[in-house]
Structure formats: structure tokens, C-alpha cells
């Protein structure tokens, strides 16, 4: 599924990377601990978090994530948006808490792991 379809279905607000919304979302990952995301997320994951610090862009770019969904209506810092534009990382915002965002992504068929050995 492409990111823009998710943006539409979950009513998300696009903050950066508007030209990258055709990124293919393969799976999802949710965590607020950057080290955990670096260690366990996989290429093509959409990452759900409430961290708005610019380091999130570095992490997303490092692991080739398809996009970042910020939750609880938390907007990224200006530095984060700038960095995301430079790195071409889409950042979108949801008003909902992470639990509900993930629940809805799951409903759309975006699952968490590619196969049982993926964790």
C-alpha cells in the first residue's frame, strides 16, 4: 500500500516529504526508543512514534523507512521538518494515540513482521 492511501484513510496531516507519498509501505513499526527502531525496524516500514526531535529523521533515513507518523497530535520541531525535507522523509501527523493509529493501520492490512523469523 502506498503512503498517500494511508494518509487519506487515516486522515493524516502531511508535514514534510509531500513528493514522497508514493513510497510503498511494506510493514509497520511502533516505538519511541530510537535505539530500538534502529535495531529492529526494516526497510519500507512506516514508523509510528511520538518523538518529534530531529533525530527521528536520521533514524528513518538510516533504515530506509517509508515514512514517520507522529501521534497524539504532536507536531515536529522546525529543525525536524527541515531535515526531513533535505533527506526526503515524509512526516505525517495523527491526532490519535499510537495504540489507535497502529490498530487502524493493522486494519488496513499493514502488519508488523514480514515473517515469523523477522523479529
Amino acid at each position: 500500500m502506498k503512503l498517500n492511501e494511508i494518509v487519506e484513510k487515516l486522515n493524516l496531516e502531511v508535514m514534510s516529504g509531500a513528493n514522497k507519498l508514493d513510497n510503498e509501505v511494506k510493514r509497520g513499526y511502533v516505538s519511541d526508543l530510537l535505539s530500538d527502531v534502529i535495531a529492529h525496524s526494516q526497510e519500507g516500514d512506516v514508523w509510528v512514534t511520538l518523538q518529534i526531535h530531529q533525530n527521528v529523521v536520521a533514524v528513518a533515513s538510516l533504515n530506509n523507512l517509508s515514512g514517520i507518523v507522529l501521534v497524539n497530535g504532536r507536531y515536529p520541531e522546525d529543525e525536524t521538518i527541515q531535515k526531513a525535507e533535505t533527506e526526503g522523509i515524509p512526516i505525517v501527523v495523527s491526532k490519535l494515540p499510537a495504540f489507535e493509529v497502529v490498530g487502524r493501520l493493522y486494519n488496513l492490512g499493514i502488519l508488523g513482521v514480514a515473517d515469523a523469523g523477522g523479529v
Binding site: D32, L33, L34, L50, H53, N55, R74
Partner: peptide, 18 residues
């Protein structure tokens, strides 16, 4: 301001400093 933090990353990894 909500979300403003000067916490170092190790504090954030502890689940604080958001």
C-alpha cells in the same frame, strides 16, 4: 511548551525527557 526538551538521549531511552 509541550514537546520541548533539553534531555540527553540516554534519558530519552529511559522513557523520560520527552
Amino acid at each position: 511548551q509541550p514537546g520541548y526538551s533539553t534531555a540527553p538521549s540516554w534519558i530519552r531511552e529511559m522513557g523520560f525527557g520527552a
